[in-house]
Design a protein around this nucleic acid. Sequence first.
DNA 1: AGCACGCCGACT
DNA 2: GTCGGCGTGCTC
Length: 819
Amino acid sequence: MNITTASIVLINATRAFDKKYTYVVPEDLIGQICVGCRVLVPFGNGSKVKEGFVLEINPQDNLEKSIEYKKIKSVLEPYPLLKEDNIKLLEWMKRQYICTYSDIIKCMLPPGISVKTIKKVKLLNYDKSITYKKSNMNKIIHNLYCVGGECEYEQLRDMCGFKGFKGYIQELCELSAISIVESYEQKVNAKYIKGVSLARPREEVIDELENNAVKKIQQVRVLEILLDNEIVSVADIKRFAGVTASVLDTLSKYGYIKYFDIEVQRNPLSSKHYEKTEPLPPTAEQENALLLLKQKLDSKAYKECLIHGITGSGKTEVYLQLISHCFEMGKKAIMLVPEISLTPQMVGRFVSRFGKRVAVMHSRLSLGERFDQWRLISEGKVDVVVGARSAIFAPISNLGLIIIDEEHEGSYKSESTPKYSAKEVAQKRCEINSTLLLYGSATPSVETYYRAVEGEIDLIEMKNRPKSAELPSVELVDMRLELENGNRTPFSFRLMEELKKNIDNNQQSILFLNRRGFSTFVFCRNCGYTIRCPNCNIAMTYHTKSNRLICHYCGFTVMNPAKCPSCESGNIRYFGIGTQKIEEEVKQRLPNSTVIRMDADTIGYKNSHEEILNRFKEENINVMVGTQMIAKGHDFPNVTLVGVLAADSMLNVSDFRSSERTFQLLTQVAGRAGRGEIGGRVIIQTYNTEDYSIIAARNQDYVKFYNQEILIRKRLGYPPFSNIAIVVFNGRKDRAVFDAAKNIKQEVIEQGSSDIVILGPSRCPMPKIANKYRWRLVVKAMDLDILIDELTKMSDGIWKKSKDDDVMMSIDINPYNML
DNA sequence: AGCACGCCGACT
DNA sequence: GTCGGCGTGCTC
């Protein structure tokens, strides 16, 4: 007789039981079940209902006798949630990132669609006079009666707290004293999302806030947001106010806010209108690029290309026309952009050109919006997806092209499990679909450019700006000389001079500072010498508590020296000023100016990133002080001066990529100046006027930078000449965590793999998070496959060993940030 | 991860 | 005879 079986993987499995299980497809479900479908299956000793995904379907005539196969319980959707090419990614990703099927599947689906199974116990015909011979059975009945005759299974079990609960329940069921009811719940449904709005008049709420009648800061934040936005979804308000649902519940209880279901036409693009644009006539350079790229596209083979094009060389127009060509071939495209540059401008250009054929995917959309966009894509109603990292999994069939813009950006590497690289996934996906993968960047990552130099990737250079706009002039200011001349402020004389000039001429300036409160490295203000780890040549981090310097790479540590090892001056200090301080200084020194600040502190909730930039532009504010965020995207025609306050602060991060990042950031920041008709000036302040990355940035010479950087990478064996993984161990007991890391390292070494190097254990840069201590190992190998194999062994080892010590382990292979 | 099973000691 | 505690091993 013929039986159909399905290979199924479970959601929320741990690595220990994360494998394919074979289930029997019941006859009435044959035809409804297909590969990629989401199903409910009984699993484990209690046959608890679990959510699973069908990976294979095979008609079978002889089943393994020794295994007792169970039947699939039901199909959740009449269509597959996972498309075929995404399923093909599963096995590869599971191995590559040492994670579970479930981790990956969750990346591929919009958040909030996972089902919750609810199992309830109901009391039937309660009769006080009946007592059962087993006291636990009476306890169950009593407890159930006390909570009103109905209770969730787990809750009741915990309430009773004794062993063999399930057995007693079964017995009671057979006696018809109770019954069990199962139901399923899903967070996001197709049309409704939960929203909140003010339940009282605005004036009243404003009054109360002003009179400090609302004491809890969480509640104030929620109310403030609601004063500005009439209706906000629950998910958004939780995120942007940084509060939990209970704060909302309290507010609702006291009548400040009310919940309701909003039926939304959840189209994130609908609120804006975009003029339709036609393709621009390409410049000669664009024409050449397009010619080559179209050819690759036509060949219908897996190919990688890199456009190395300076800012303003018109890469986006090339992307747009290439995507058009892809459409003409009857295929669809994915366009990845860094989260940060997913501003309305970029989306706007796509929508203007392609209208309703565009879907967007990024984390700023609400749960409902994401679900809707995902559905549109899945149903084949759009032809191109513009999105951040996770859009690489967009459920597109008939994929013909993937473009990764700003390829060097770190946001393409995920920092939470699975710690995947969207670039690697894109390679795999393009390989599966035999199609073109195009990278674009003004400052390609060393790894990618290396592959281009080696001939693995085809390189396309774009060197001219179409409007023949001039590149800004870049000037270096040596801060050591400033100090000698008695200037102890963060601003050099030159920068001050130019700032004043700009204010007088009513032109705008941007002051750029690296990440606020940046990690503390020690350097000499006299000669610029930075203390580096003798093993790793990486700037060491200062720890106030112990007054020691630590290399976060290998764990090497020394006392903080009192004198500069190079010039013996005592003028040695740690570095780190914040944007807030700078804002104050500017106000103080230039009292007639207007200043605006932008960093993670001033970015509150939705759109305010946008609002600050718009204010800066429209109100013609003199100076903007900011971090990373201001480095990209926007064009400010009236900005003619960019000042980089401390170029060194990026250079001396404990990371082998610090030079690369310095160069990229400086180049990008410089690109902000002079986007209009007036020529721009860039002033870079530094203590390292001789550093190659800073000099190359001044000369805007990528290739020169690359040539020097690649030599250093080769000499020290950093990527692309090796693969590096960071393995973090965490747990409640400091000692146990350290021991686990040490033992695992020992074990791997004893097995004698000579092809890998393990450094550490050393404390993580953040040694304690949420009451858990953190230690880490750095594992290096030339060969990625060997590295993955060793890490997998480590990962499987820890489950057996540290069960009782609750030590957890997480692996990041080739992280973007070493910190 | 759950959850049952098996074994032991304790208590009615 | 029944209950709770704890270690072990399996889940189609």
